[in-house]
Amino acid sequence: MSVLTLDRLSVTLRTRSIFSNVSLRVAPGEFVGLIGPNGAGKTTLMRAALGLIPSTGRSSLAALTARDRARAVAWMPQSREIAWPIPVERLVALGAEAAGHSPTGRAGQTAIEAAMSRMGLTSYKGRAASRLSGGEQARALIARALAQDTPLLMADEPIAGLDPAHQISTMEVFAALAAEGRAALVSLHDLGLAARHCTRLVLLAEGGILADGTPAEVLTPENMARAFGVSVWHRQTGDGPIFQPLEVL
């Protein structure tokens, strides 16, 4: 049983191959961090997995109808676009609507309130979403995705641009979702946070998956040197793993 299955997925844009033959399964309970250097194709991989761009090979999500896909996965693009100053509660309600709930019905209300309280937005209900700070907007958009109440949540760099406290609390939300039996697939650049919070890391580099496993298995000096060209410092402590990139090789 998996919430996402990719079978030899390949994407070619014009004549350039972005990645080829990527196979991946994400199971309930996993918090998967998708890491890799700039331009490795993390965003492209996730968009192809969702069926938003053409690809060859098979993705279990891309095969679904638009409506069924909306019940299988919630997607947070990197752009964090909020075009209009709609109230935060209405923004979160978009997720509940995508799940097929009426936003005024009991199931819809429950989903909206649960998502808002989980992201600490209860006191923001009537505020105009597009006028919030960047961090508050990011939290509102995560709440929207939570209200969609899907077995899988996919997010493209959801913690980029957040302060440390919000980075950590956001990672904890994803980890908690996984612990509840849902799954998250999240692209990340902060390898330290990825090491601490993800149950599994997938390293995308050189046009395919270079490593896939627990953070300790993936974040080896050899893999980091090969994929990112950096040396790293890595310790297992009583407080969990501490991982720090050191210098460019």
Binding site: E81, I82, A83, I86
Partner: peptide, 9 residues
């Protein structure tokens, strides 16, 4: 309404 969050969303 959903397009408020962009085309992908």
């Amino acid at each position: 309404d959903a397009l408020t969050l962009g085309e992908d969303a």
